[in-house]
């Protein structure tokens, strides 16, 4: 087929030269498609939800000295900030219960990386054997006791590590399977609540008096829930919500 006759009665065959009319059409279409595709990429990327200002200082290994407590979750009460304990977890989606249980109420020095969000802080312990150094076997300090009060809060059950910066965003439906996995791995559960003024509040969660979450509770993770329970401020900077699993209900 000669090119001239094919241009008179244009017919596209993949392995032959493209007719002029088709070539013009395809060029225009490809340019328009490319512009549309890039436009879609820009729009979708621009309107994503702001993940919050959580920070994971992976590049800055730090040391803290203080007293460990295992209750309600592994925490370090720093010597220089007794009212703001730091949650302590391991690398990956694992809690630090097994590593820290022998140090309950001991004064220790720990190494790791800090995660923080809105003033709430968490330590990811370094993985090597000397990440925890015992200073004295049993600390003198016992945790101060705050007053409990009954509350009903609405929000989303999240795992403390991702929400405080390990993943951004560390909440929402897209993060659900990760949050469930983290909580199965004994990372501390929290409920993130949004206040009427738009600010976010946090309560550490203790359900049914244990740190193990049942499948019924895990089914509520990453969904809007309402929890009725008792809030205790054992420390100024940490509120813990004690509740029963039957008092957690969907709020959708």
């Amino acid at each position: 087929m000669d090119e001239q006759s094919n241009n008179r009665d244009p017919f596209y065959v993949g392995y032959l030269p493209m007719p002029v009319e088709h070539r013009r059409f395809v060029r225009t279409l490809v340019v328009l498609l490319a512009l549309w595709i890039l436009g879609v990429a820009m729009v979708i990327a621009m309107v994503m939800r702001n993940p919050g200002d959580a920070v994971w200082n992976t590049g800055n290994e730090q040391s803290w000295t203080g007293t460990f407590t295992m209750h309600p979750y592994p925490m370090l009460i720093p010597d220089n900030d007794l009212q703001n304990p730091l949650l302590v977890v391991s690398i990956g989606k694992h809690g630090a219960h097994d590593r820290l249980a022998p140090f309950d109420r001991s004064v220790v020095k720990v190494r790791g990386w800090e995660l923080h969000r809105d003033g709430r802080r968490l330590i990811e312990l370094a993985d090597d054997g000397d990440a925890i150094t015992m200073i004295s076997a049993v600390g003198e300090r016992s945790p101060p006791r705050g007053v409990s009060r009954a509350v009903v809060v609405e929000g989303e059950i999240v795992d403390g590590k991702c929400y405080l910066g390990a993943m951004k965003p560390g909440d929402g439906q897209g993060h659900r399977s990760c949050a469930v996995l983290c909580l199965r791995g004994h990372l501390p559960p929290m409920i993130a609540t949004t206040q009427p003024d738009g600010t976010t509040g946090y309560h550490l969660l203790v359900i049914d008096g244990t740190t193990e979450l049942s499948d019924e509770v895990l089914a509520m993770v990453a969904r809007p829930v309402r929890i009725a329970g008792m809030v205790a401020h054992d420390y100024e900077g940490l509120s813990v919500l004690y509740a029963k699993s039957e008092d957690i209900t969907p709020s959708e």
């Binding site: 890039l38 990429a41 820009m42 979708i44 990327a45 621009m46 994503m48 702001n50 993940p51 919050g52 200002d53 959580a54 920070v55 951004k168 965003p169």
Partner: peptide, 16 residues
Amino acid sequence: TFFAVGSIVFRGDHAI
């Protein structure tokens, strides 16, 4: 494009 726009719009402490 997605990566660049996402990194520019959400940067610093708000980075995804």
